[in-house]
Nucleic acid binder design. Structure first.
Length: 426
RNA sequence: GUGAGUGUGGCCAAGUGGUUAAGGCGCCAGGUUGUGGCCCUGGAGAUCGAGGGUUCGAAUCCCUUCACUCACCCCA
């Protein structure tokens, strides 16, 4: 009987799955290099207030999904449920406004949300995200979106759909929210229970409802894009122009609002083809011009994006895209008898000093068993030391792919392996 | 928080009231003297998620509970 298993909503990333993770990570690092984004790592937990302040008290994340606890000194801490607020906190704390603006940062980190797990959704999941801080230029919005789409393209994901909207700023949004509330107030008798609540607390999310009774109403609802102030409208127009220049296709979706309160102007999400269910979003982001001010800094416009590592991998698998295989050991050292084993230990160590990856046979098993093991590991070659070789100061070098072998001195075998390794790379 | 489905050795999985719970993968060991991948043989490994009940008898029926999966809310 198993006494312990991974906590609900968490998962082990086993060796056989690492190829996907390393592949995605490699492309992530590469896209950040291409666009000049620098890595930042922030703590796994933060002062609870940071998230309440930034994400919004009325959001689901803060209301019911955070892992919060008091530490032994009584401080209230929260396991990071999203990546943007901590980056903003670090930007402020380290005076990054003194650096050339905008500052471009990225992170790869686990996040924690207490939710019921399901496909592509975990209580601990990994997100890759990047932020451009300190510029209101719509070209930066376009850059971030281009980067996001570029990442998926580099990974080989096909037919991803970009949805785009602008939800205005604190100057024009109140106006919009007012007409939105007026519109829904007249239809309140048609709304589902959730939406009645949303009308009171967070009217924007009325648009997000997938309830059959509410859905038709959202079609007729006032659109945020029609209420944008001159500045927001100009920003949105420029963004769309840049996206066209970049050759990116996008669907304008006036129902697209994001779950976090800090967004202003640009919001966008990216879906896989044939989206099924609302939780299929692979990545999303937007502009958050007030957030840094909100947590105590100077007004600092910024825009960012985040995408779920698990969801990228899920979609890679759904599209039958395989990850490059990870390197396998080059050599396997087998031996017969204790004296040979002594020699094998020394040889394996010497090969590693030469930078060759080596696995030394375990136990004292038959040669057959040892070679079976070497085969299972995918070793390129085996070095066999038996009594005879021991006597003659030789080893048997066996090519595990061709099945050919020859008797050599250890030094000759070493240079043979070395030449194969460098030759095999090109 | 709500709804649905599923729980049989490490993994997949047959069995739906009746003698020692199939099979496959994987693992281990053999198929003569020191050699892998194919094939053959053998072996280890399961209190049939847990607890209770019905019954002469339960993996199979009932109840409770736990876990997992999928979906909803919401999000990546």
């Amino acid at each position: 009987m198993i006494l312990y298993q991974a906590p609900r909503g968490t998962t082990d990333i086993l060796p056989h799955d690492q190829a996907y993770w390393r592949y995605v990570e490699k492309e992530v690092v590469n896209i950040c290099r291409l666009y000049g984004y620098q890595r930042i790592d922030t703590p796994v937990f933060e002062d609870a207030g940071l998230f309440v302040r930034s994400i919004g008290e009325e959001t689901d994340i803060v209301e019911k999904e955070t892992y919060s606890f008091r530490d032994r000194s009584g401080d209230l801490l929260t396991l990071r449920p999203e990546g943007t607020a901590p980056v903003c906190r670090a930007y402020l704390e380290h005076g990054m406004h003194n650096l050339p603006q905008p500052v471009r940062l990225y992170y790869i980190t686990p996040l924690f949300r207490y939710e019921r797990p399901q496909a592509g959704r975990y209580r601990q999941h990994w997100q890759f995200g990047f932020e451009g801080l300190g510029s209101s230029d719509p070209a930066l919005d376009a850059e971030v979106i281009n980067m996001a789409c570029g990442l998926y393209r580099h990974l080989g994901l096909r037919d991803m759909v970009l949805k785009l909207n602008s939800i205005g700023c604190r100057n024009c949004r109140p106006q919009y929210l007012k007409s939105l509330r007026e519109y829904y107030s007249r239809k309140v008798h048609l709304l589902c229970a959730d939406c009645k609540r949303r009308l009171e607390r967070n009217a924007l999310r009325l648009l997000d409802c997938k309830e059959e009774s509410c859905f038709p109403l959202t079609e007729q609802a006032p659109k945020s894009s029609e209420y944008l102030c001159t500045e927001c409208k100009g920003h949105f127009d420029f963004l769309k122009k840049y996206l066209v220049i970049l050759g990116l296709e996008f669907d304008l979706d006036h129902r697209l609002v994001r779950g976090l309160d800090y967004y202003t102007k640009t919001v966008f999400e990216i879906y896989p083809p044939g989206e099924k269910g609302a939780q299929s979003t692979v990545g999303g982001g937007g502009r958050y011009d007030n957030l840094i001010e909100e947590i105590g800094g100077q007004p600092t416009p910024a825009v960012g994006f985040a995408t779920g590592m698990e969801r990228m991998i899920l979609n890679l698998k759904r599209q039958n895209i395989s990850a490059p295989t990870l390197p396998q050991p080059t050599a396997f050292v087998a031996f017969l008898g204790q004296e040979a084993k002594d020699k094998a230990v020394a040889y394996a160590a010497q090969m590693r000093r030469e930078g060759i990856s080596v696995i030394l046979a375990s136990g004292n098993r038959s040669l057959k068993a040892q070679l079976r093991h070497a085969n299972g590991l995918g070793a390129a070659c085996a070095i066999i030391i038996g009594e005879e070789e021991l006597r003659e100061g030789m080893i048997v070098w066996r090519d595990m792919v061709k099945g050919e072998q020859q008797r050599l001195s250890f030094e000759d075998a070493l240079s043979l392996v070395r030449s194969r390794e460098s030759g095999g790379e090109s």
